[in-house]
Every structure is written in C-alpha cells, then in structure tokens.
Design a protein around this nucleic acid. Structure first.
Lengths: 253, 253
DNA sequence: AATGGTATAGAGGTCTTACCATTCAGTCAA
DNA sequence: TTGACTGAATGGTAAGACCTCTATACCATT
C-alpha cells in the first residue's frame, strides 16, 4: 500500500447472524428464563426444529454446543434433558475456559478460600437482615440433616451460596458455585468422614454468628479457618483415594 | 439375534462416546496443545472431516460448539480461524456460565479488586525472582509504549497476568483474565483518557516495587488502591458514554 | 498506475433424506 | 406375576445437494 492506507471503517458493518447462533441464543434463553428447568425433558429434535422453523441439522449444532458445554444431556432413545446447574462445568468447558485439562486441587481450594474469606467479610458489612437470616437457615438445615436425615451436601453448598448472596456480588457468587462444583466429588467424600459433619456445622455456625453480629474481621477469619480445615480434610480424602488397591478413579460426571 | 443378546461388554471398558464428542475433544486438544494457534486458519470442513474419518455433519457439530463457545470464528467463503484467547469469553458462554445476560460492572470491578489484591499479596510472598522480574518487565513495557508508541493495553493486561502468575494460582490467574476481558472495552476507553496512562504506570510501578521488596501488605494495598482508582475512572468513562448524543453502544466484539 | 468490473473457485450455511442404535413402554404368552 | 418380544420414538451418523458469501485473479477503463 503505497499511499497511506485509510481504513477508517466508520460505517456499520451490517450484522448478520447464522440460524444456528440464533437458535443457540434462543435455547439458552429458555434455560436462563426458566422455561426449561433442570431435569426437564425438552421437546424432541424433530419437533423442536419445526417449532423454530429450521432444519434438524442447524438445530442440532446449537443443541450439541449446549450439550458439550454441559447445559444439556442427550440420551439416545430417551430424549434430551436440562442438566441441573449443580452438575455444571463439564470437562470440555473447563478445557475451553482454562486451556488446560487439569487444575491442581490445591489451587482450587486456595482460590475458594481467598474468595470466600472476602465474601464473609462483605456479608457482615452489607448483608441485609433477611440475607443473614438465610445463612442461619442453612445452619439449621444442616443441623436438621444431621439429626433426622437429609442432604448435608445441599446444606453445605447452600450455606456458602447464602454467604455469597449476602455479600451482594453476583460474579463472586458464581465463582463460589463453580469452584465448589469442581470440588464436589471430594467434598462429598469429606462430608462422609466420621465426625466431620458436626465439625463443619460448628464452623458454619461460627461464621454465621460473626456475620450476624456484623463483625467482618471475625467472619473473615472464621471462614478462612473453616476452609483451611476443609482443605486439610480434602487432602486427606484424596490421599486415601490414592492408596487402596482397586479403587476406581473419581472421574468427572 | 433370537436369544436376548445380553451383550457382555465386560471386555471393553465402555469407551462409548459419540463421534461428535470425540471430535470436540480432539479439536480442543489441537488448540490447547498449540497445533492450532490464535489467528490460524484451520483446514476446511470438507477436508477436516475426511482426516478425522467422520461425516461433515458430525464434525460441524463439534466445530459449531467451539465457535459458539468462542474458541473459533467462521467466516463464510473465507474459512474458520482460531480466536485469540484475549478475545475470549463470548456472550453465549457468559450466559452459560452465569445464567444471566447482564452482570453489573460494579460487581465485576469489585470481584477483580478483591481477587487481585490477594494475588498481589501472594506474589510478594511466594513469587520467584524470575516471576517478579517479569512483572517489572511489563512496567518497563508500558513505559516504552507511552514514550515510543506501542500497546499500552497489552502492557496493562500483561502486568496483571504477570502478578497472577507470580502468585502461582492457575485458577485465579484465569479469573483475572476472564474478568479483565469482561471489562476490556471500558478499560481500553479508560486508558485513552489524558494523563491516565502515566497514572497507571506509576501505580503499576508501586505494586511492582512492593512485590519486589517482598512486602505483601504494601503490595496488597497498592493493588487495591490501583483498582479502586481504575474503578472510579471506568465509572466516569461509562457515564461519559451514556451522555453523548450519537455514540454507538459498545457491543461485545 | 489506479480504479472498478467480472468471473471463478472454494469456503461455510442450510436443508433434505435416509438409515442406524438405543431406549422405553406396551403386549402377550407362559 | 413374570418375562420375552415388539414397535414406536429418540438421538447419532451419513451423504449429497444447493445456497450465499469471500478472496483472488484477471481484465477493461480511466
């Protein structure tokens, strides 16, 4: 280009989108807006593509993308279902996101501890009464689960999410969820160790009480120590899993 | 098969997977392992599906998934290209990840500040000499960019990534990258404000020096104040963008 | 030379049709 | 009641056709 190119593309470059991309956004919005809820079975492909007015091929490209991301699950002869968010973050997505297949457990635990420590402090500072009460609710839920049966796992997860919600930061709330999902397998094992549930409950309670009395520092350190202990236990569980002779590897669901 | 054909699949360990999923993993690994680098043009579909020994339909489902995630970009008549990681995190993926279309800028800024504050502290504690030197390198790169032209944006991004790397936590390193990408548009605008680049440079330098003298607290507070100022400026830019009469909206790239 | 038109090959986008493999529910005989 | 069988419905895969769009090279005009 001899004469100083000009480039200056002022004009709008006319946007066009592909059918597949449009379908993808549409389908995602179904999930996001709650038309399709976790566990739901969505209409069969042959029906859906008619509703959307596109060919099955185009629809499938969108559908497949959602499945590979981990939003949907297809079973031949059965149908296609919406995955619960709790089982989110598929390995393909992890790849896409991190550019690597394997992330050190320790890194995840550390990230979680750092983030949730901050969140605990924020929750104590800015949580509303209702939001803080929701935290307490999860403490009681765990008590209930321990005493009369129920899902300790859910109570655990929900407790941490309640804290994140009280901290009023959607981004970190989501981060908590993602990190927690990455650790799901090991945390579940951890919670089954003898005495651990009582231990966790008391730690949660300490965090809750600190938040309730609006003591950010106490909340931070309570959360920190809780997650340090958790990390310790998780490491122990992981080591245990390595030892046995014929134990199958955890594999991500 | 008249007699119930109970397929005893004892022998083969169930390696059952769909062709599309297999192709997807294969393609991802090309990107991850660097066979396909950012900007590369990948083989045409008709050729690629032959190489992989699958139908174009199946290949396209995998290809499309990668495109919708934001890993690839297809242009009709031209070809399919690998997206640079810096332009990662497409809106569809954001949807899939957060379950929402819109996240408050303030939340993103806050999350970033909290995370990077921790990272700055960790970098001061555990960064190797080389890693810390890499931080300084980015400070100098920005000096160079200001004085003799060059990408201030890159130097800015790389500085923060260098800090994250010195902190030795892959998860948070990636978080920094993602959050930064979400803010990309506004940060770029911010960096163009008069005097801001010098300001940023001096703040970066302060962080670098704190890290280098292994002072976690100083590093934390330097990073914190840097990101508070940044948040302030970004808000100002956002407000400016709202006012003018005929400014086009930013739109995600 | 620079500009603009034009032809063309090749890329992705879309649709159609077909068939396969699996699953599930209903049927019917033992 | 049980168990095997059957068939419809579903997702998975393949192949081929045709479209629009892009980049490129070539040519005519200025």
């Amino acid at each position: 280009m001899p004469t100083a190119a000009r480039v200056k593309r002022q004009a709008t470059p006319i946007s066009r989108t592909t059918l597949t991309a449009a379908a993808f956004e549409q389908l995602i919005s179904y999930v996001v807006k709650g038309d399709w809820k976790a566990g739901d079975r969505i209409p069969p492909e042959r029906e859906l593509c008619q509703q959307l007015g596109i060919a099955r091929t185009s629809l499938r490209e969108a559908l497949k993308a959602m499945e590979l991301i981990g939003l949907l699950e297809s079973r031949v002869g059965d149908g296609t279902f919406v995955c619960p968010r709790s089982e989110f973050l598929s390995r393909p997505l992890l790849w896409a996101l991190t550019g690597t297949d394997h992330i050190e457990l320790g890194n995840i635990m550390e990230a979680r501890a750092l983030i949730e420590r901050d969140l605990a402090g924020l929750a104590a500072e800015r949580g509303t009464e209702d939001e803080i009460e929701a935290i307490g609710q999860q403490v009681r839920a765990m008590r209930e689960a321990i005493d009369h049966g129920g899902s300790i796992v859910d109570a655990d997860m929900n407790f941490h999410l309640a804290v994140a919600r009280a901290a009023k930061n959607d981004v970190l709330h989501n981060a908590v969820q993602l990190l927690r999902n990455l650790l799901r397998h090991w945390i579940n094992l951890k919670l089954m160790l003898p005495g651990v549930s009582e231990q966790v409950l008391s730690e949660h309670d300490a965090i809750y009480k600190a938040v309730r009395r609006r003591d950010p520092d106490a909340a931070r350190s309570a959360m920190w120590s809780h997650l340090q202990i958790t990390a310790e236990l998780v490491n122990r569980v992981v080591e245990q899993a390595k030892q046995p002779v014929h134990r199958q590897s955890p594999s991500n669901a």
